[in-house]
Write a protein that binds this DNA or RNA. Structure first.
Lengths: 217, 217
DNA sequence: CGCTGTACTATACACCGTACGTTATAGAGC
DNA sequence: GCTCTATAACGTACGGTGTATAGTACAGCG
């Protein structure tokens, strides 16, 4: 035992999977804004640079986390009317985003790539094609549905997290109430409705049903 | 003239408006990811802490920039059928987001507040109420439309910026082409359509028309 | 003239991502 | 058992970040 032998962590403690899991835990525990490579490395008992053996940079790790989460989107059940299949996929994606709020931000800030992401796209596109939509219509509809889910759920998460911070929530309420009822009569009148409809299954389904109704017509 | 007198900037060089305009310029020039208070302060020839006289923190400045941009959303013209009025507002908001890409991220990451934001909401809500929608339906529809515009345009900007970076764009193409045509037949088949429909007026209007068709039915 | 409020400065802290060069070790080949 | 080599993890350092805190010079007013 040479005197210079340090308390070095053994060789293969790390792996992409372990890093992704640890990073995800940290991200969900402290929020994406407070997520850092140094934090992940610390959690793993390792220097920050150790992560660069497995990921080229922070964005690369983000992509891996995104794909890791997309794997949790369930497959489309085959024994449903196609509109219900579409509903199933959209609701499933939303549910996952609500369960892992950071997923919304990851989806909105990085391009789609990765196997699991392709799997989800394949499921929805397959449904649309099987329903008889032409290639272009299928692609357009897929993009429309995806972006609706992304926007609606992003917004929902945003409002929910605002509500959790009592200070921010109170500031928001008072700033709304301070709006002149003369200048913005409808906003003031509908303020309670707007607060109530800024999230929840009903609101999501309302918009989704509008899209599906348009699709069916 | 005491020897200690430094080249101090005169007293009232700063103002909230000037800071917001400078910050906005910087944000659009270098991208939101490279935006920093120090950058703004430097541009203004002032120490970083000078900004704290006018804004409580960085998020507060973000809110001010957002409201500054929302002021550019045009008012609703009164002499149109109401569905066209809705179209006008949604397209106007999208156009502004495309012109100022950072607006999308600001809208998605902070709650709505501010006078100009309220003005835009008032316009759309007024149209919906005037069209005969009940309070709850008006609020739900408003949220649906807003979140669709947010999601669709966020995605559009995301894809466009990806296309501008030739390296990232090539990586995305190759990663798509490397997908097994056996495992993901529809994605591979529709890859060109998906790329083509990931942005543009036609794609946006396609989804918007789906919503409006659902609304009219 | 002196006072006070305030617009701006200076310094400092605790972080961040990551480029670069180094070192210790696991496993391969002898 | 030995050495050799590839590489996993390390340490250091750089240039940045937001912002807390304390200090300073000036405008306006009595």
């Amino acid at each position: 035992m040479p005197a210079s032998s340090r308390a070095r962590t053994p060789r293969n403690t790390l792996s992409p999977e372990l890093i992704v899991r640890t990073a995800l835990d940290l991200m969900e525990a402290k929020g994406l804004h407070a997520f850092s490579l140094r934090g992940v490395a610390g959690e793993l008992g390792v220097g920050p640079m150790a992560l660069y053996t497995y990921f080229r940079n922070k964005d690369d790790l983000y992509d891996a986390i995104r794909d890791h989460l997309m794997a949790l989107v369930p497959d489309v059940p085959q024994d449903l009317p196609w509109l219900d299949q579409v509903r199933f996929v959209c609701r499933g994606l939303r549910a996952l985003m609500l369960q892992h709020p950071c997923l919304a931000q990851l989806l909105a800030s990085r391009p789609l790539s990765g196997k699991e992401t392709a799997r989800v796209a394949e499921g929805l596109l397959g449904v649309l094609r099987a329903a008889g939509l032409e290639p272009e219509a299928a692609a357009r509809t897929h993009t429309t549905l995806f972006t609706y889910v992304l926007g609606a759920t992003t917004w929902e998460i945003q409002m929910a997290s605002e509500r959790l911070d009592p200070d921010a929530w109170r500031r928001l309420r008072t700033s709304m109430e301070s709006l002149s009822a003369h200048e913005f009569p409808t906003v003031v009148e509908l303020a309670p409705e707007l607060a109530r409809t800024s999230g929840g299954d009903e609101q999501f389904d309302y918009g989704l049903d509008l899209l599906l109704a348009g699709l069916a017509s």
